[in-house]
Design a protein around this nucleic acid. Sequence first.
DNA 1: TACAAAAGTGGAACCGGTTCCACTCCGGTC
DNA 2: GACCGGAGTGGAACCGGTTCCACTTTTGTA
Lengths: 344, 344
Amino acid sequence: MKKAPTIRDVASAAGVSVSVVSRVLNPDSGPVAPAKRETVLRVIDELGYRPRAAARELSVGHTPTIGLVVADLANPFFAQLADRVVWEARSHGVQVMVMTTQEDPHLEAESLETLLDRSVAGVIATPTGANIEKWARLRALGVNVVFVDRTIPELEAVDLVSIENVDSARRATEHMLGLGHRRIGLISGPLSTSTGRSRIEGYQRAHNNFSASVDPQLIRDVPFRGDGGGDAVGSLLTLRERPTALIVANTAQVQSSVRRLVQIGVRIPDDLSVIVFDDNPWTELTSPPLSVIRQPIDMLAVHSLELVLGRMQGRLPPAPRTIEVNADFVPRSSCSPMTLSTIN
Amino acid sequence: MKKAPTIRDVASAAGVSVSVVSRVLNPDSGPVAPAKRETVLRVIDELGYRPRAAARELSVGHTPTIGLVVADLANPFFAQLADRVVWEARSHGVQVMVMTTQEDPHLEAESLETLLDRSVAGVIATPTGANIEKWARLRALGVNVVFVDRTIPELEAVDLVSIENVDSARRATEHMLGLGHRRIGLISGPLSTSTGRSRIEGYQRAHNNFSASVDPQLIRDVPFRGDGGGDAVGSLLTLRERPTALIVANTAQVQSSVRRLVQIGVRIPDDLSVIVFDDNPWTELTSPPLSVIRQPIDMLAVHSLELVLGRMQGRLPPAPRTIEVNADFVPRSSCSPMTLSTIN
DNA sequence: TACAAAAGTGGAACCGGTTCCACTCCGGTC
DNA sequence: GACCGGAGTGGAACCGGTTCCACTTTTGTA
């Protein structure tokens, strides 16, 4: 448990000043004679010297670290996003602090404080929708913020990377309408989130395009946490006029919803046609395999990272950017045309 | 983008010295008159002062942060582990840096260097099995290391939290043997990992207990990354004497394996009885629902965190600890008794 | 009332890097 | 041969906390 060598150890062992060592460490910070550079590098290697991040951070004021704030990692969508972000960031020499909010504004606030304490240079986040002043404060202190998947409209001029939510929901809905369905259940995220609202809008727009009327009873906005999806499924299926199709547009509630369908013994697609948002690996292992809206998680990760790094290096025009990537509709076997027999 | 207040700002605004402010910040570091304490707290609140982690870290030498090193977050097992660890750690006031190795020893080595630079006080990891000297070095520098799920036998005296691997595999195998199966395929992790070896051992032990012979052809150790599980499935099913049962004991290869079974059109359990390691949420959504060995991920997370925190606070006897939690066998509908008809 | 012990306080060194600046060389130019 | 500019170097301040220590004030006890 001996302690690690410092820059002064290196300097004295190499017979130079700390300034020289520092300049060797940071190639663009000043000239060093080639011979000395080599000596220093050799000594660094011999001693196994590594500069301590905290010391550097203290003097330069920030650190090549970003925060990633997501709801929870048990959700495959966030887990995969985190995996890609961590991976991509590392290839850029940037570390990632992963924080989870469990969709709790209070915990989100705490996470933001912590990230501030750690002097992170940027944050990628799926905001809960609350903590508006906290986010504003973070940005006022120079932290670059990029929202991914959802945003907070009240916060102006913030970068956003998401899928085309309105359009994806519209396409899924139109697919159902095209099959003849007219009572289409929609399980969406809470109205406090932009995704929740956008996907409902897409659903409505599709109905307009088909001159079909929307029954508000069929639209359920449920929280991301808990078992709301399953409950909504249960409730939708007890309506006097049962839906013949179901779109689960709340990523976090897909599992809960499908589990309930299986429990109840609903036959898919005979009793109910189903499309779910997000292509988790297991969606093709169910029987029948589920038709899905596939979110290009890799793209979301890459774009948001690029955005935050670009801001950190100041090589982006100041105007806020919104990047919308499109999500594919992947038809599998969970949708069938509306037939008379479908009506109970 | 004004900059944040420092401890000296607080001190002068409160009309005291920085020492007093510091003592207010760290309650046990010395006496402060109640009146002044209150003044300082008020000023801190007014100014929105927060101590910078880097400065504190630099002077105390370490930071209340642990590293979590896992293979990848796309694997639900690790994702859930990470979720719990991050969550538990936060409730103890500890931050977590999540690093992924993608099972690549080179990336693992890089991660360790980074964690060292960041002066983390502890590391929870699922080691790739390589980098023995790096791990040793980390520990020599005073970083507390706890392995979870797998270990490196060559490293002595390291704490370990895992499930009872031998026993779990034994139980799963005996379940199959008890149903009359005598040709049981086993897909396991690489032999370079302790889990891989232990689970094979459990498989063999079960055969001994049943006085059944083990056909080495039925045992496949495949890498965690890639599509080895699917390939092993394919290969097992083309054996002259096909297995009538299959145990997938490589968590990372369950999806790939099951996907291949579905693709090939194998009927479960009619053609093949199946048990998989690890109870991902989707295992009960397949048809039939899969019988699983359920790893108590929460327990793994809680124990490893407790261990690493205990070491950090020096309130644990120096002897290395091995905590083995037991994994439940959850029977569902993917296993059936061996019958004559099962033989092709 | 006297005096030791405890409470309270501020100054300053320190942690390990970065960076500014002054200074010494050196070669090239008129 | 005087002068200039740039390469190369080291000293020292600085980042923002913590902590040791010397010092003063208060408190408790004989």
